[in-house]
Amino acid sequence: MKIAFLIIDMQKLFLDDSVDKRQIESACEYINYVSNILRKTGHPVVHIQDMEGRQHDLNPEVRNIIPQIAVEPDDLRVEKEYSNAFWQTNLEQLLRDRGVKFVVTAGFSAEYCVTFTTNGAAERGFPVAILQKGFLSQDPDAVRSVYRDRQVVSYSAIEFMAKACQGLS
């Protein structure tokens, strides 16, 4: 069984001035830890970048992934125009081609792109959970809502699953 890790919209444009730096550092620590576990055990890590309206950007640099997120050469990338990263992208096919059976989401923003992409995975038949402490929002109520209303998975559970699945794909 393959586990895919979708890291959503961890871009300068969204995070530079809108979220507390300590929250960003904490979320990045969890995201990077899980990314490393999954890479080492042969599971795909996918960086999803919002490109909506990019033709209007005066500085395209703001669309880059923040430097606190580790991006490796073998990581996959998907550009999206909508809140749901599955909508009008190749993400579903990319996951199916790699035999993905479980999806973990993380990133920004809890109430929009993380939730909508999580819903998109479920709508396409993927069991899915959001990484505990691996998602952000400008609104603390949105974070509490995700913990209350969504499936959340800890890094230690992902580590166990990834190692248990190693070599079984």
Rank of each mutant, 00 (worst) to 15 (best):
M1D: 09
K2E: 05
I3K: 04
A4Y: 14
A4N: 08
F5A: 06
L6T: 04
I7L: 07
I8R: 02
D9F: 13
M10W: 14
M10K: 05
Q11H: 06
Q11P: 06
L13M: 13
L13D: 08
L13A: 09
L15R: 01
D16W: 09
D16P: 04
D16F: 13
D17T: 14
V19H: 10
D20I: 14
K21Q: 12
K21E: 12
Q23K: 13
A27Q: 01
C28M: 06
I31C: 02
I31P: 01
N32M: 09
S35N: 06
S35M: 05
N36C: 08
R39V: 13
K40E: 10
K40R: 14
K40F: 00
G42H: 04
G42N: 00
H43A: 01
H43R: 01
H43L: 00
V45S: 12
V46K: 01
V46I: 13
V46L: 01
H47L: 15
I48Y: 00
I48A: 02
Q49D: 00
E52R: 11
H56C: 15
L58M: 11
E61N: 12
V62H: 04
R63I: 09
N64F: 15
Q68M: 09
Q68K: 13
A70T: 13
A70D: 12
V71W: 14
E72Q: 08
E72W: 07
D74H: 08
L76Y: 11
L76Q: 05
R77S: 10
V78F: 02
V78P: 02
V78L: 03
K80V: 08
S83F: 12
S83D: 09
N84K: 03
A85N: 06
Q88S: 07
T89W: 04
L91V: 04
L91R: 05
E92M: 04
E92L: 06
Q93Y: 12
R96L: 13
R96Q: 09
R96C: 09
R98D: 07
G99D: 07
G99P: 06
G99Y: 07
V100L: 08
V104S: 14
V104C: 12
A106K: 00
G107K: 04
F108I: 03
S109V: 10
S109L: 10
A110M: 01
A110N: 01
A110I: 00
A110C: 00
A110V: 01
E111H: 10
E111Q: 08
C113R: 03
T115F: 09
F116N: 04
T117I: 06
T118R: 07
N119Q: 11
G120T: 04
A122E: 15
E123S: 15
R124A: 11
P127W: 05
V128S: 02
A129F: 12
Q132F: 02
G134P: 02
F135E: 05
F135G: 02
L136V: 06
L136P: 05
S137F: 03
D139S: 07
P140T: 03
A142I: 01
V143G: 09
V143C: 11
V143P: 07
R144K: 14
V146C: 02
Y147W: 06
R148H: 12
R150M: 15
V153S: 10
S154F: 08
S156K: 11
A157E: 11
A157D: 08
F160P: 01
F160D: 08
M161P: 04
A162M: 11
K163H: 15
K163G: 07
C165R: 11
C165V: 05
L168V: 11
L168E: 06
S169A: 15
